[in-house]
Write a protein that binds this DNA or RNA. Structure first.
Lengths: 327, 327
DNA sequence: CTGTTAGCGCTTTCAC
DNA sequence: GTGAAAGCGCTAACAG
């Protein structure tokens, strides 16, 4: 393996000049620069990243900490982050915190050990409640989750507004008794609840919401009970994919027809929403765009640490399908 | 930030002793070791990884190169790799090659630049055809894709056998004209074809297969044509998820009933297979196990570079659902 | 059992 | 415009 020293010797210059050329710095004559470049190519020289990182005290590595990469939402976000990062010569390190604050802390410490240039984080509720950017030695951009008053760079979707649009759509198609099923332990769930409540209030309808623990199993039990209750809701709106899934299973068990007996819709348009029959109405999140915005925000902060915190709010898109067609 | 030097000074020892304690090496008295450990904790000392990597010439970073992390198969594999890696103090760097040999080469070069300890790779067909482990400066484990004679560590599924079981199941439920739709440009697609052909031949039935380009759109066109042909097949077996998807769309367009008019099944049991109606029969791959096996294989080779190549073949599981019920 | 010391390969002053 | 030299923080060989 060729070293910078070898390149310098062969090109008849000092290592300093080679280093300058490598960094694209001025202070090297055009002729010398050409010669060095040629030599680098001839010797297939590749700088040693460990040495460079030790000396320069920067890694150009970004961290990405999400709850679970198997969640398609985060898969898309991560894909965007990676695309941009690699394009700019940055590396990405991935971590799954599984909504576990202890694991999250562990990975955050790992990020410090790695001396990463920055981190994109989808925080647990627990961290979010006491989150302060200045507690960390590296810049952090929050993605998907942020409290209204969180002091940090963040990229979120317009949870309240888009849910409000979705509920309004349900009202417009003739539903009155509209139940909202949501994850009450999550910031996004609560924001979506606000949107639901606003739409109901504006229409003079009764708010009828049911908070759930964020487990897939619980959703099935609760929806079973809800479907058996009387009068049965005319529509059920879910705040996330797992809840929607539980609802669909319960509906099939009960032998109900959608949208005749009951209209349904969800948030975070999953791939299968268009495949089930009837296809499900949902708010699609601009996942790739969110990842893209997150890394742009992070790079911008890295370049300019002193700047004000910025919050990017991206619009969810209501995708109307058969599950909410006029009965 | 505390340095090893500071720890040594404060504990009244040399940096060598601190380094030994850090590495868990012998040659330090129990008492001294305790004192050093305490000091480390007090000062919240964390070794500088860049320095360590430069000096020790090893990074304990693994590379993971797949076609697209948005493919649930690879998402699961990656999750397993990460779980094991972090558990053992290794880092993972993720890359999406998008089935593009140029991009794949780029990332492989990046891995060399990073001086990774090893790589888990799902190679493009193009690389696979000329793959030689010795062309790389780091150990590589192939996952999902390997030719019969590829000289490399690899983890694959029993493509031919499990497809054969699936086709046999179609025969047992009374189908005779069974069409096989497969990606002919992929190693896995071809292996699955062999399994299909074996099952048909064994039953004295006519092999009737159609190779497709690996694009989702093409599948829809071809299946449209197939469904319109006469006599129409009694069953269609697909070699992968995208093809199955195209088939389902075409069936709905044509207004055919499954399984009465036509039985269908797929490979690589996607999450939505149980959600569509009727639910689709498919071969489920042990994705998490494959990732786990891949990293175990990699770690084993890193520990013992000279050992023989090993190939782990994991069984696919036939999940029978309504789409192949007796007509 | 413990300490001294020579680098790992690079960037970055500082001189010239 | 160019080079010499001083480290970045650590590990490991060697000496005691």
């Amino acid at each position: 393996m060729a070293r910078i020293k070898d390149v310098a010797k062969r090109a008849g210059v000092s290592v300093a000049s080679v280093s300058r050329v490598l960094a694209g710095q001025p202070g090297v004559g055009a002729e010398t620069r050409e010669r060095i470049l040629t030599t680098i190519r001839e010797m297939e020289y590749r700088p040693d990243l460990a040495a460079r990182r030790l000396r320069s005290r920067r890694t150009d590595i970004l961290g990405l900490i999400v709850s679970d990469i198997r969640n398609p939402f985060f898969t898309d976000v991560s894909r965007a982050v990676e695309d941009v990062a690699y394009q700019r010569g940055l590396r990405v390190m991935y971590c799954n915190a599984d909504e576990d604050p202890a694991k999250e802390t562990l990975y955050l410490e790992m990020m410090r050990d790695e001396n990463v240039s920055g981190v994109i984080l989808s925080p647990t509720q627990s961290l979010l409640e006491r989150f302060r950017s200045q507690d960390f030695s590296f810049p952090i951009v929050l993605v998907d989750r942020a409290l209204p008053d969180t002091q940090a760079d963040a990229v979120v979707v317009d949870n309240a507004d888009s849910t409000e649009r979705m509920v309004r759509h349900m009202i417009e198609t003739g539903r009155r008794r509209i139940l909202f099923l949501y994850g009450e332990a999550s910031a996004t769930g609560c924001e979506r609840y606000e949107g639901y409540a606003a739409a109901m209030r504006a229409a003079g309808l009764e708010v009828q919401a049911q908070g759930l623990a964020p487990t897939g199993e619980g959703a099935l039990d609760i929806t079973r009970a809800v479907l058996a209750s009387s009068p049965r809701p005319e529509a059920i709106v879910c705040s996330n994919g797992p809840i929607l899934l539980g609802l669909i299973d319960a509906i099939r068990e009960a032998g109900l027809r959608v949208p005749q007996d009951l209209a349904i819709s969800g948030f975070d348009d999953p791939f299968w929403a268009r495949l089930v029959q009837p296809a499900v109405t949902a708010v699609a999140q601009p996942t790739y765009e969110m990842g893209r915005a997150a890394i742009e925000l992070l790079l911008s902060r890295i370049a300019n640490p002193g700047q004000e915190f910025r919050r990017v709010v991206l619009p969810g898109e209501l995708v109307v399908r058969e599950s909410s067609a006029r009965a």
